[in-house]
Structure formats: structure tokens, C-alpha cells
Design a protein around this nucleic acid. Structure first.
Length: 591
RNA sequence: GGGGUCGUAGUUCAGUUGGUUAGAACGCCGGCCUGUCACGCCGGAGGUCGCGAGUUCGAGUCUCGUCGACCCCGCCA
């Protein structure tokens, strides 16, 4: 009487077509409705739900056994597919037209009562969800998200295969490199006192592969960075990494646009517009205060530095005298929305990014309203209002400080206002290339230049002679791809000449000895016929998060870590056996 | 390293100005029920109020510390 465990169908596929057939289904008890006589079971697997019916008149034994069933029990059932009685069709279920009358049933496994209701819409604390991740992964949302993530990687592999790429694996146990993020380190037992580093990205290997004549490489690969976490940052994350020989920006952009379009088409059925907009870094900063502007709405920054020059308002005057700026946002039709309380909240947003405050002017029907207008001569006020295009109903908010603080604070106030006033059409998809990043930036604490992208990024040809004269003014052949205000990828055309690479190290204060210790293999390789090459890497987790409409990349990762980088399911990281430490010749120093 | 929010039954939450025996819904357990699909009806069990200290006649409630989760700054492409 034991039913075959070999199921004939999944729980998501039976319909009118199988009426009369005898089928075997396997799955979990989703819900049980025991009527004393009839028992209804909704049987679940990842493909769907099927209602099975236990009727004592059809099989007394099966019906009796079914009384012991509880939620999450794993069962196999065999029975006949029948159409549901008139009026009993469940339109909410894919399989709602039929039900299966069971004449044989086996409990394959029992289950404890789960710590939280599965398959439910109740929001469960993330602590529990992460501890019992295997249960949470049964939920519709996570099932859907992981499927979407797979749709993306499948599409990428197909697409790049069609573009003559090959996927090549690169080492996980590799060399620690200076610059960039903090490394995750792995001690070497065979080489005491020496360490491997887990890769922050396969950067150097993919460049070497170009020198090897691989021509087009890609890899969907884990990367590791030991930095603090955010909702879009995990210590281990996945890159869609690629590198191409004999490539320039227009050709690479076209290829990537095709790939992103394929991803949208295959995973969401959405056709997106190509080519994407291109915005130079400086313009992005000037207009939006950010190198990853959300361009689904306007509300651009307006530079008022010239208009307010010579003002009696000390805050503005001081900022300008210290080499700063005064910039503003003109929030149209907002005087009723932006109450005093909300303006205070927005000021707090600005302060988070270093602003000391946030001035504002409201254009009311009966004139201007603001704590600061008394410091301005009427002509200057008129010029200011004219410059921002102020009309009745507008609120103008100001930032005055060093350019970076002005940009950061206004960029984030801009986003907060967009959210507050529903300026963003959620259906809109804005993909934008940001180009011509600065090659280097000056690190005030370390008193030296650091690479903005990484040390292997080529400068623009026209800036090549500025290594000595104006390093801060050099622009890089680097680019980011921004989706609705989120950086989803970035890359560059690389340096392929060893003399330029040496100059770059020189600028970064990496002397020849250190350069050879850290990157000697690359410098050597560059001398053996390195083709011009470039590439890009995408954050798969972020792309999946955005396409899934999730709030965090944790929701598109099967087993994510908490903000303290621990795994609540496995309890990693954990203590280790002293024997292991001894083998590695490691000792703690907790002083 | 810093700022913020949160932590009460298995779960989601309520709990007044500090005052008797800490409640609800769902879930769980038992009983009844042959057309339910969030089945229904009756009954029952279930609490270290995250942990520790303090203030107080009295603390879920106030204070301090601590642990954990989340969001953010710094950090990080």
C-alpha cells in the first residue's frame, strides 16, 4: 500500500487536463482544514498549491492517518484528479479548478511547529527569519527573489556567451593588495606568518587574462570586503565581472546596454530604452550634488554663489570667503507641504552630511517668508528669486559650505523631498552612465593622493601630461552605471603601458619597491604585449534587489549576514579549536 | 568610532501618570463538524516583559549599563 515516492506532477501544474488521471504528489502540508468527515489539505511545493481531499468513503485508512497531519509535514499522496463541484472553484489558485481525491498517503517526515507562521504575510522580525532561514526561504517573496536572481545570472551567461565571452574562474586565495577596502585574511599553514587575502574583486587577474589573449572574459564571482555593512552592502557579495580587449567606451557601453536590456526583458518582461543617458561626473555633481543621481525627477541644484556675493548674511558670506559655495533647491508648489516641522527634519538630513544648518525662503502670496531675508538687500533678494525662478508656492532651501558638504547635503535633502512629495514615478527606470571621474582625490588624513576608482585606471589621453602639473585635475576613463540613484556597476579603460602604470603608482606615493612587491606580476605582464583593454563589474545583489523591489540585498541572498557580519543560522563567526590556532602558529593579543 | 529606532506569550502587537492576578489576535493542544480554501463552533495550555544594576513602599513603564536586530554618518565602488 506504500505509494511510490516518485511524484507524477508538482503541486502547481494540475488542471482540467488531468481530470480522471491517477497522480502522485509530494509536498508540505500548507494548511489543513479538518471537517471531521472530509479533510482538505493544501499541499505545497515551490511550484504551487494543490487541494487534496481525504474522504473516509474513498479511503478510510488514509482519512484516519490524515488526522495526525500537521502544518509542514512532508507527505506523498496518490489519488484521482477530479473537477471541483460547481461553485467550488478557487480562482486564487493556479490549480483551483481541480482537487485530488486521495486513496493512499504516506507521511515522509513530520515537522515541529515552526517558530513563525510560514507562507504568511505577517512581518516577522529579521532575527527569527535569519535564524530559521530555511523556513523563511519557503516564503513566496524569497522564492520569487531567488528565482529572479537566477533569471538574471542565466541571462547574463547566455548573453555574454553570444558575445564571444568565456567565463574563467580566478583564485579565492590570493594576495593582499594595498588601496581599496580592508581585506579578509586567511592564514597560511604551510607558510607561517604569511596570509592570503580573499579577493575584493578579480581586478588584476582579469587584466592578466587580457594579456593572455582571452579577449573577452567574464565571471559571476564572490568578492569580499571587510568594511561596515549597509542595506546594500554585505561582506561577501557577487559581481558580474567582465573585461574586454581592444575596447573603448562607446563599444563597451553598447554591449552593456544590450546586456541590461536582456536582463530586464528576461526577468521582468520589460523593454527598456537604449542607449542610456551619459552624464559627466562634474555635471552630475553640479546639477544633482551626487555621482549617482536619481534622475527620475528634476529638482536640480542651483548655484547662487555669484548672486549672493557680498551679502550681509554671515553664514553665506563666510562660506564664500572660505572658498565655499551657496547652492539651493527650488521646491515647486511646496509651501503647504514643507511645514516648519518638516523643514526642521530636512535640516537634520542636511546636518547628517556636515551642513551646519539649512536656510529656507517661502514664496507666499503675500510675499517672502523666511528667517533670513532681513539680512538681504531687496535687489539681491530679487536677483536670487529670479535666478531660482521663484514663483508663489515655491520653497527655496539653501546650503552654504565647502563644495563637498553643499553637494552631499543638498543631494540628500533632494532625495528626502522627493520621497516626501511623491516626486518619483515608481514605474520609471532611469539608467545613466557617469563618466570622466577624477583620476585621484586627495586624502586629507593620509596627506596623499588615492585612486578614485583603482590604481589601474587610465587617465584621459588629453590629461596624460598632468601627472606633475595638476594631478587633482586629471580625469579618468572610468564610468559608473547608475539605476534610479543606485550605483549598480563601475569600471574603466585600464592602463596597458607599464610606464604610465609606474607614473600612476608614483602619484599615489607607492614607490618602486612597494609597487614591485605588491603588483610586480602585473608590471611584468604589461611588458609582454598587453592589449588595450577595459571592463566593468556589476553588483549582482544590488541589481537583483532593485529589480525585485526589495529593501535590502539581504532579501536576494540565500544566506545573508547581519550588520555585525554574523550569520544567525550558523553562528559564524565562531570560536575555533586551539589546535587549529596552534597549527597556524597564531596567538591572540587582546591588549 | 559615532547618531537614531526597536526588543512584552510560539508569532504580530496593546499595555494610561510608576499601582491588584500583564491582555488581544493568530498559532499550538483537546473536543465537535462531509464542501472548506485565512473553514467554523466549544474548551484549554502558554510570560525570566532581552539581560544586569539602580531609584522607589512598589518598575513592563523611570535612570544607567549591557546584549542583539535594523537604518544612517565615518568606512567601502
Amino acid at each position: 500500500m506504500t505509494p511510490s515516492f516518485q511524484r507524477t506532477h508538482t503541486c502547481g501544474e494540475l488542471s482540467d487536463n488531468q481530470v480522471g488521471d491517477t497522480v502522485t504528489l509530494c509536498g508540505w502540508v500548507h494548511t489543513r482544514r479538518d471537517h471531521g468527515g472530509l479533510i482538505f489539505i493544501d499541499l505545497w511545493d515551490k511550484f504551487g498549491l494543490t487541494q487534496v481531499v481525504l474522504n473516509p468513503q474513498i479511503d478510510k485508512l488514509a482519512h484516519q492517518e490524515a488526522q495526525a497531519l500537521r502544518g509542514n509535514f512532508v507527505i506523498a499522496v496518490t489519488g484521482k484528479v477530479r473537477p471541483r463541484p460547481a461553485g467550488m472553484v478557487n480562482a486564487k489558485l493556479k490549480t483551483g479548478a481541480i482537487e485530488v481525491y486521495i486513496d493512499d498517503m504516506e507521511i515522509l517526515n513530520k515537522s515541529e511547529t515552526p517558530p513563525f507562521p510560514g507562507w504568511d504575510e505577517t512581518e516577522i522580525s529579521e532575527v527569527l527569519r535569519l535564524k530559521y532561514r530555511y523556513l523563511d526561504l519557503r516564503s513566496d517573496v524569497l522564492q520569487r527573489n531567488l528565482k529572479l536572481r537566477y533569471d538574471i545570472t542565466r541571462t547574463v551567461r547566455n548573453f555574454l556567451h553570444g558575445e564571444k565571452f568565456i567565463e574563467v574562474e580566478t583564485p579565492m586565495l590570493t594576495k593582499s593588495t594595498p588601496e581599496g577596502a580592508r581585506d579578509y585574511l586567511v592564514p597560511s599553514r604551510l607558510n607561517p606568518e604569511k596570509f592570503y587575502a580573499l579577493p575584493q574583486s578579480p581586478q588584476l587577474f582579469k587584466q592578466i587574462l587580457m594579456i593572455s589573449g582571452m579577449d573577452r572574459y567574464f565571471q559571476i564571482v564572490k568578492c569580499f570586503r571587510d568594511e561596515d555593512l549597509r542595506n546594500d552592502r554585505q561582506p561577501e557579495f557577487t559581481q558580474i565581472d567582465m573585461e574586454l580587449s581592444f575596447i573603448d567606451e562607446p563599444a563597451l557601453f553598447k554591449l552593456v546596454e544590450g546586456m541590461i536590456a536582456a536582463i530586464y526583458k528576461e526577468s521582468l518582461g520589460i523593454t527598456i530604452e537604449t542607449p542610456f543617458a551619459i552624464l559627466k561626473y562634474q555635471e552630475a555633481l553640479d546639477r544633482f550634488g551626487s555621482d549617482k543621481p536619481d534622475m527620475r525627477f528634476d529638482l536640480e541644484l542651483i548655484d547662487l554663489s555669484e548672486v549672493v556675493a557680498g551679502t550681509d548674511f554671515k553664514v553665506f558670506d563666510q562660506a564664500l570667503k572660505n572658498g565655499g559655495q551657496v547652492k539651493a533647491l527650488n521646491v515647486k508648489k511646496s509651501t503647504d507641504v514643507l511645514s516648519r516641522k518638516i523643514l526642521d527634519d530636512l535640516t537634520e538630513v542636511a546636518k547628517t552630511y556636515g551642513a551646519k544648518g539649512m536656510a529656507w525662503i517661502k514664496v507666499n502670496t503675500n510675499g517672502l517668508q523666511s528667517p533670513i531675508i532681513k539680512f538681504f538687500k531687496p535687489e539681491m533678494l530679487d536677483a536670487l528669486i529670479a535666478k531660482v525662478g521663484g514663483e508663489v508656492g515655491d520653497t527655496i532651501v539653501f546650503a552654504a559650505d565647502k563644495p563637498k558638504i553643499v553637494a552631499d547635503s543638498l543631494a540628500n535633502v533632494r532625495l528626502a523631498i522627493a520621497k516626501l512629495m511623491n516626486l518619483i514615478d515608481p514605474k520609471k527606470i532611469c539608467l545613466t552612465w557617469i563618466t570622466e571621474f577624477p583620476l585621484v582625490e586627495y586624502d586629507e588624513t593620509e596627506k596623499r593622493y588615492t585612486a578614485m576608482h583603482h590604481p589601474f585606471t587610465s587617465p584621459l589621453a588629453e590629461d596624460l601630461d598632468k601627472f606633475e602639473s595638476d594631478p587633482a585635475g586629471m580625469r579618468a576613463r572610468a564610468y559608473d552605471l547608475v539605476l534610479n540613484g543606485n550605483e549598480i556597476g563601475g569600471g574603466s579603460i585600464r592602463i596597458h603601458q607599464s610606464d604610465v602604470q609606474q607614473k600612476m603608482f608614483g602619484l599615489l606615493g607607492i614607490d618602486e619597491k612597494e609597487a614591485h612587491e605588491k603588483f610586480g606580476f602585473l608590471l611584468d605582464a604589461l611588458q609582454y604585449g598587453a592589449p588595450p583593454h577595459g571592463g566593468i563589474a556589476f553588483g549582482l545583489d544590488r541589481i537583483a534587489m532593485l529589480l525585485a523591489g526589495a529593501d535590502s540585498i539581504r532579501d536576494v541572498i540565500a544566506f545573508p549576514k547581519t550588520q555585525k557580519a554574523s550569520c544567525l543560522m550558523t553562528q559564524a563567526p565562531s570560536d575555533i579549536d586551539p589546535k587549529q590556532l596552534k597549527e597556524l602558529k597564531l596567538k591572540f593579543d587582546l591588549s
